[in-house]
Design a protein around this nucleic acid. Sequence first.
DNA 1: TATTGTTATACTCTATAACTATA
DNA 2: TATAGTTATAGAGTATAACAATA
Lengths: 150, 150
Amino acid sequence: MTSDDTLSPVDALAQLAFLVHGVLERRATEADLSISQMRLLGILRDREPTMNELGARMVLDKSSISGLVDRAERRGLVVRVPSSTDRRSVRVRMTDAGRELTHRVERGFDADVLALLAGISPAQQSALVSGATALISAEARARAALADAG
Amino acid sequence: MTSDDTLSPVDALAQLAFLVHGVLERRATEADLSISQMRLLGILRDREPTMNELGARMVLDKSSISGLVDRAERRGLVVRVPSSTDRRSVRVRMTDAGRELTHRVERGFDADVLALLAGISPAQQSALVSGATALISAEARARAALADAG
DNA sequence: TATTGTTATACTCTATAACTATA
DNA sequence: TATAGTTATAGAGTATAACAATA
């Protein structure tokens, strides 16, 4: 055991990703939610998308979305509402129960990540966060440029 | 469209985690491997553990390990070898084919992460990497302390 | 005809419980 | 008896293909 002092940049980011991902997974599991269900609920926080739009956003097949929404609906976390403009179409809306559960998981996750950050110095914290923010915006810009070109 | 400029620290780390995790998942999927199979192969890179040890390391039930190893073995990526000291016990060894496939995925992943890093300034790169490294060691220390106490 | 969504089917991943074979 | 591992079974998550209803 030693030896995170010799991490390559790639390993450092990979381990960080697994660490944070694992923290979210643990908090979600506490609430009997999978990462997929959390993603779904996160999207529904401020939207009421069709099944189709959900598939595009989550990059999942429509049949996968059907199953995901089925299970969430069975638990009372979301409801399907008929679209007013296209009778083939369905919109997915989060219920109050879904919102409450989502908030609960998010609060736990926030606390965990803040606790992780508290383990390093304030200077390191701001270096990490500003680096992460920069990387995310750079990637978003690159993706937008690709989408434009493509 | 806009707006990674107002990320909270927690959101910044969460988005970074999803970004890096997604990159690995995409590269693994290219090679028809799941994240779980990649974890398994990663562990076998420099070890020949028993099923039991694998379960402890991956924090999975032994029956899950059985299935994971079954599928990897069916693809020729690992082999089960009888333990020389305990006839109940089995050791898992990566094959050359497994090693080759693992390396291929790792090379792709490394290239992707380095490309991401190349999108931000050298100063931001080193801030991010040293912050990540610090966080990982702090967490490892905290976990070790807990294990000691517990 | 094309699109929206569901269903049937299949495979991976995970867990629990029951089992076999050693120790 | 206890431990190492497998098998049977079940449920979530994912995809492909076939289908129904609507556009």
